[in-house]
Amino acid sequence: MRRGSHKLSRRLFLLLLYAVLTAGAVVMVAPFLWMVSTSLKAPHETFMLPPIWIPEDFRFENYAEVFDRLPFFRFLLNTATIAGLVTFGVLLSCSLTAFALSRLRFRGRDLVFYILLATMIIPAPVTLVPIFAIMRRLEWTNTFLPLVVPAFFGGAFPVFLLRQFFMRIPRDLDEAAVMDGCSAFGIYWRVILPLGKPALATIGLISFMGAWNDFFGPLIYLYSIKKQTLTLGLATFQGYYATDWHLLMAATVIVTLPILLAFLFSQRFFVEGITMTGIKG
């Protein structure tokens, strides 16, 4: 009898959980549905009350208009190039750093780690002007370089996550590799990188997202329209006077969709990666 009621309460509890989670999921998704719905509306439908969730005609022309007004294909290509290079740079440089900080032992190692952590508390806007001056001196303005090159020089948060993950890889593997005559680089290349795939996927996606969504970097460094990115195109649609909401939302969908697909494809890897980093203070 007790066991039965226990089961029943377990069922009720689960039902309640599903109800709460579903309600929450609706709150999370509704703004996106509104975004897609608005992007397919005729201008006069956007402010109708009560709100229209399913437009009378699906106006796919809105999307054509966005591509017509600004070179969004070019923006897409540029954004993908930048985000791809940034991701590659972060993966390469941060895995090297994280490897050294987790698997090698040398003087000053922990100091470097703490300095790196401390850099997370530097407010970004203040370094904007000095870094701009450096980029200008290097004659890198109006190229992808100011956005891409720093990624090849490490970063605090990805290094932190990767270090946590690498520390959990059994050390016996290193020793076995040393027996086989591997150098430190050999351990990095043959042992740590292959085993670190889930964590690398996680870092990769985070970096890709960051570069894809970056607004201020492109605003400041990319002058020529041929070199600009999606977020800049999107910002142009937020009008100076009035906003054409249906076009703005169509542009938003165009910017969001690729990153959404990237996430859905890497989603399994991604969650697994964070799970396995097992962040501990």
Partner: peptide, 19 residues
């Protein structure tokens, strides 16, 4: 641990330069 000062800093070079 596998111990080597020079190699450690070689691996850290990009990060340190970036810093």
């Amino acid at each position: 641990h596998y111990r080597n000062e020079i190699e450690g800093y070689l691996f850290l070079a990009p990060q340190l330069l970036g810093l």
